[in-house]
């Protein structure tokens, strides 16, 4: 990954359009560029899956999109407004549209508040003037599968899966347009994951949601996403239509990720050498070059631009691979 450039963007009439976003953090070891020049767009009603391993910047990218924290540079167009330009109060007023659920269902819920208070929080902030009466919140609780008779309980009285349902209800109570799901099933029991994935699928239709779905689990991302963006060390490696990208991964990193899916039957020889470089001191050129089986001199010096690999399939690699990965 490596890649920079805005070539994969599909026009300027989409719901979300992020251009050249850079996110930096100050750490005791120096400044870390967690997201380097990332551009992507999401059409209304679409689900964009963001995959990558820890430290690739996938969560940071999504959070920076909603300005938590704001990116250092770049623009985030949402519904014809640049979220990085508008005032703090204007941004706060836009928040209802852009909601998020988190990986850790326990950390997501305030242990001292009741389920009802948690779900009602958004309405409490903005008032019931709009569509959200308490009766509709009760309906929403039923929709996510939490019996409203338990509204006065606190989070620790529920299981992880139920806490995730409560989080989802809280996020939907403001009738958002966009839902960011950050590893929403990674912390759940295997037998419960499908319940939550199916619930998200139902709610996406019922509430006409546009989704960003962040996960390290390729099989899950493949199942839910229309488009997929693969990230490595703060940059985008490959982005495109989910079917095209998984059937014909062009970036050596995507290939390695696919090959590593346990028991999936994906048969590829791609194997990563060495360790993930420190984000404090990312490699020059293509950031993946230190571990790439196809590395050449140009990779070490020049950051690859995106090239088109299919109708909606872009790869940022000097040596894109065309051997399809065999999925047994």
């Amino acid at each position: 990954m490596v890649g920079v450039g805005t070539a994969p963007l599909r026009g300027d009439d989409l719901l979300i359009r992020v251009e050249n976003m850079v996110v930096e953090f100050n750490t005791s070891g120096g400044t870390v560029q967690a997201v380097s020049d990332v551009s992507f767009d999401v059409a209304e009603g679409e689900t964009l899956g963001i995959v990558g391993e820890s430290g690739c910047g996938k969560s940071t990218t999504a959070k920076a999109m909603i300005q938590l924290p704001p990116p250092k540079s770049g623009s985030v167009m949402y519904a014809d407004r640049d979220l990085t330009e508008i005032s703090k109060e204007e941004l706060r007023r836009s928040r209802a549209d852009l909601q998020m659920i988190f990986q850790d269902p326990i950390s997501s819920l305030n242990p001292r508040r009741t389920v009802w208070d948690i779900i009602r929080e958004g309405v409490d902030i903005w008032g019931t003037a709009g569509v959200w009466s308490d009766a509709r919140l009760v309906e929403l609780m039923e929709q996510v599968g939490i019996d409203p008779q338990y509204r006065d309980r606190k989070a620790y009285q529920f299981s992880g899966g139920q806490c995730q349902r409560i989080s989802i209800a809280r996020a939907l109570a403001l009738d958002p347009k966009v839902l960011i799901s950050d590893e929403p099933v990674s912390a759940l029991d295997v037998s419960v994951q499908a319940q939550i994935l199916n619930l998200l699928d139902d709610l996406k239709t019922q509430h006409a949601l546009t989704m960003l779905f962040i996960s390290h689990d390729l099989a899950v991302v493949r199942n839910v996403s229309d488009r997929v963006m693969v990230m490595y060390l703060g940059r985008v490696a490959e982005v495109g239509d989910a079917d095209a990208l998984f059937a014909n991964p062009a970036h050596p990193y995507t290939q390695a990720l696919l090959a590593a899916v346990p028991g999936s039957g994906v048969n590829a020889s791609a194997r990563l050498e060495g360790e993930l470089p420190s984000p404090l001191d990312p490699p020059e050129g293509c950031r993946f070059h230190t571990r790439c089986p196809h590395v050449t001199e140009v990779c070490k010096t020049t950051v690859p631009e995106f090239t088109q690999h299919g109708p909606d399939h872009w790869v940022a690699c000097h040596h894109p691979q065309s051997t399809p990965v065999e999925i047994r």
Partner: peptide, 12 residues
């Protein structure tokens, strides 16, 4: 209940 890579996208 677990999605796997051979499933079609969007498989319930």
């Amino acid at each position: 209940s677990i999605p796997d890579m051979t499933m079609e996208r969007g498989t319930r």
